[in-house]
Design a protein around this nucleic acid. Structure first.
Length: 305
RNA sequence: GGUGCCAUAGCUCAGUAGGUAGAGCAACGGACUGAAAAUCCGUGUGUCCUUGGUUCGAUUCCGAGUGGCACCA
């Protein structure tokens, strides 16, 4: 796989990644692996800006609509499955395109993640109850005892992080810090990273226009149909949770739509914060396909030598 | 037309017994290892509507104007 390359197209939501990646994949006559942690779910099409049927038939996509909202899934499984899929695809293609905005999932494929146990649902439930009962401070105190090293560096105000560490300690009998080695694995293929972005104002305009399009396209019906699954992680997602609040009668529809726009803007900012720290990322406007292609070609050339 | 109330950050509003002001949300920045479209942290960005008066000093008190809301005609 020495001369095989994975070209990653990422960037904030609504920047135009999907159309761009299809064009790029067609140029190389290859296929696309999605790195979008919400487009995995086939029941969530409108709210996740799922590729259209035309787009899906233009280029073969993988990891799009491959799961049901009821499926258990996580980054580690994704890493394994994508590496397998890449092994297969590189048998047919020199270049494969990966497209999506889920930074953690992209990192898992590019660098790998440590060998940690999957979460045990009943243990997590117990810990959540304990958190609700005793408060975050008590959970941090517990971590101070079970894994003082990680307790030093953990975000002590972030319940998810604290609970996850406790979970791993309790499940394995080892400290989270001893398992969390943060080693970067070498992959048997080259990686070229492209970030797509737009001036902030324009990106926000596109986000707002896209939310209006989703509503016109039936997002409310989609959310209504998913209401019975609202407790699942997959539905803890921008666009759905705000509409659930409307369906509960807590806010007006108008307010829900405004909230979706706000949540999406904030999500885009968090994505940018994540991607900005990646110094290898080459940034382009989604309109500059030619410029990006030129960059890709020269990067490929360089990797071959 | 009359009377009353209101006018402070992008929005909703607090406040200053006269010494140029602060919350929430937004916005902006950051963190991120099996929840990641998740979760969490940090930052106040301002002709205090305009204008005249009183005062050493007015966003604050008084008058007028403008705009908004309510009630009465």
């Amino acid at each position: 796989m020495k001369d095989k390359s994975l070209i990653i197209i990422t960037g904030p939501t609504a920047a135009g990644k999907t159309a761009f990646s299809i064009r790029l994949a067609r140029h190389f006559g290859t296929e696309i692996i999605s790195a979008d942690s919400r487009q995995f779910y086939r029941e969530m099409r409108i709210g996740t800006a799922f590729p259209t049927p035309e787009e899906l038939s233009a280029v073969r996509h993988h990891f799009v609509g491959n799961l049901s909202v009821e499926d258990e899934y996580n980054v580690a499984t994704y890493e394994v499955e994508v590496l397998e899929k890449l092994d297969n695809l590189f048998g047919k293609h020199d270049v494969v395109v990966m497209c999506g905005g889920s930074g953690l999932y992209i990192d898992a494929v590019c660098r790998g993640i440590d060998d940690l146990p999957d979460h045990d649902p009943s243990l997590r439930e117990t810990l959540k109850e304990e958190l609700a009962e005793k408060g975050l401070e008590a959970m941090v105190a517990k971590l101070d005892i079970l894994d003082p090293e990680y307790a030093e560096i953990v975000d002590r105000k972030n319940p998810n992080r604290v609970l996850r560490a406790l979970e791993v300690c309790m499940q394995t009998g080892m400290t989270y810090s001893s398992l969390r080695k943060n080693v970067s694995r070498q992959r048997p293929f080259h990686i070229i990273r492209l970030g797509l972005n737009l001036p902030r104002e324009e990106l926000f305009r596109r986000i707002e226009a896209r939310v209006d399009m989703m509503m016109a396209g039936g997002l409310l019906d989609e959310a209504r149909a998913l209401l019975p699954f609202r407790h699942l992680n997959a539905l803890n997602t921008v666009g759905y949770k705000e509409l659930f609040a409307f369906l509960d009668g807590k806010i007006s529809l108008e307010q829900a739509i405004a909230d979706i726009k706000t949540s999406t803007r904030r999500y885009a900012r968090r994505q940018l914060t994540w991607f900005r720290r990646d110094k290898d990322m080459a940034w382009f406007s989604p309109d500059d396909f030619e410029g990006a292609l030129e960059y890709v070609e020269s990067a490929l050339q360089q990797k071959r030598n």
